[in-house]
Write a protein that binds this DNA or RNA. Structure first.
Length: 415
RNA sequence: GCGGGGAUCGCCUAGCCUGGUAGGGCGUGGGAUUGCUAAUCCCAUGUCAGCAAUGACACGGGGGUUCAAAUCCCCCUCCCCGCGCCA
């Protein structure tokens, strides 16, 4: 969530942000609720103080064996009044939390303003692009069985076989080694997390469209290890000297894709499950933008090493996710479709997740704890990268050239 | 899954039986002193608001009893030990 200070002091900045994101939001309702909230807190505090004072007096009277009946009667009235006040305050607090948690993050100054993906701005382009005859489904042939997966699980599932299974695991191993070189700590997180943790990482409305819930349990399948990595240090005050903390999260990702009916039906570009190696960084506010660039560069280099042509774009305000303050996408060239398609998303969420999850840091014992910044970036999502490899490295004889760095992980040069 | 024991401010712990301002040790931060990294002493050290005085909140979570709950009652979660089952 955003800093409540901004709601009080700079509501016009919020209005501009909401407009840039093309988001419908009743800001006035939040402003009123926030004003009420401060009044409720002050009122209940005052009553609590009175009740606590009465308690002390009663205790002292009893100790000196004096009659405390009058005081107890008074305290009964105060307690009753407090209970009434508290229930109003709780109702207000719930409303406030619901409203402020639905409010998107503020937008960084360098984000291009625009309504959708047509206003994204390209900032980098790498590699030679050409068109190849087959799309990844045709290249994969028998190594990919979508029909049987549909029979067994439904649409957007897949069976991988032989060379593609080895390719999948090779990508993961290579990706982990790649991040290890940059000083990342490897983390394999829980694949299911509870609601509170999930709500810290994403906005409530996203639950419906992307997150699978476990029946009768307070557990949700992670849509990305980001969710589990963000919540990892929730309710903690981290030692400032350890920042930035850089994690390489590796996990399967499960997505409902409910809002994507009819989109990318072919093959394994958009599926309900895949593996992903993710960069997740906890940083000091003053270092987070440098860290953001660093993460992007690490991902770009990864695709360069695999000889996958790509371009990098800055997402415009209307195309960004709600928790991000700024997002870069890397789009890989898919030679079989002659198009650039999203393969990496690299976001600085500033203090937005940190506030929801209560993640702070301080340098010395007596310092005031500060919210830190969280950043996340795909290093590699295996299915989409396999699509890029199959389409860009397909051969005329129907085989696939394995990119050089993966050959030793697979013990294969050609699939 | 069954039985037993636990959860208190970073760590260790007192308080619970008998309801009435949550105390101590270690560690950490700051300072003093001593001509050396040590020792000693003082201050600070759960969270939030506040310039501050101060106030509120906090004893795993949620209910209940009570004027008043770390303390009494109920439910839940997690951890440890033993047994069972198991990749």
């Amino acid at each position: 969530m955003i800093d409540p200070y901004i709601i009080r002091e700079r509501p016009d900045d919020i209005r501009r942000m909401l407009q840039s994101r093309v988001v419908d939001y009743d800001l006035n309702e939040l402003i009123l609720c926030e004003q009420e909230r401060r009044r409720y807190i002050a009122d209940t505090d005052k009553l609590r103080q009175e009740r606590n004072d009465c308690g002390k007096t009663i205790s002292e009277l009893k100790k000196s064996r004096e009659d405390a009946t009058d005081m107890i009667n008074h305290m009964k009235r105060v307690s009753a009044e407090l209970r009434a006040q508290e229930s109003m305050q709780t109702a207000n607090e719930e409303k406030y939390q619901r409203l402020i948690r639905a409010m998107p993050n503020m937008i960084h100054d360098t984000v291009p303003l625009g309504p959708d993906d047509t206003t994204n701005v390209e900032i980098n382009r790498w590699g030679l692009t050409d068109s190849k005859p087959k799309n990844h489904v045709d290249v994969a042939g028998d190594l990919l069985d979508i029909e049987r997966a549909a029979k067994v699980a439904g649409s957007r599932f897949y069976y991988l076989k032989d060379g593609l299974v080895r390719l999948n695991y090779a990508i993961i191993s290579y990706a982990l080694d790649h991040l290890l070189e940059y000083g990342y700590t490897l983390v394999q997180p829980p694949y299911m997390i509870n609601r509170q943790s999930m709500e810290g990482a994403i906005i409530a409305e996203d639950f419906e469209d992307v997150i699978y819930k476990i029946q009768d349990k307070d557990l949700y399948m992670v849509g990305t290890s980001e969710h589990a990595m963000a919540a990892m240090h929730s309710d903690e005050i981290m030692d400032g000297h350890t920042l930035p903390v850089r994690y390489a999260g590796v996990s399967p990702c499960f997505r409902k894709e409910a809002g994507a009916h009819g989109k990318d039906q072919k093959g394994i570009f958009r599926v309900h499950q895949f593996e992903k190696v993710e960069q997740f960084v906890y940083a000091r506010p003053e270092q987070s933008w440098v860290e953001h660039q660093r993460m992007l560069r690490i991902s770009e280099k990864f695709y360069e090493s695999l000889s996958i042509p790509y371009r990098t774009v800055i997402l415009s305000s209307g195309d960004m996710g709600k928790v991000a303050s700024k997002t870069y996408d890397i789009e890989a060239w898919m030679a079989g479709q002659s198009a650039y398609r999203e393969i990496v998303s690299c976001s600085n969420c500033t203090d937005y997740q940190a506030r929801r999850l209560m993640i702070r840091y301080r340098d010395r014992t007596n310092d005031k704890p500060q919210y830190l910044h969280t950043l996340n970036s795909t290093l590699v999502a295996t299915t989409r990268t396999m699509v890029a490899i199959m389409e860009n490295h397909q051969r005329r004889d129907g085989h696939i050239d394995v990119p050089k760095p993966l050959q030793s992980y697979m013990n294969l040069k050609i699939i």
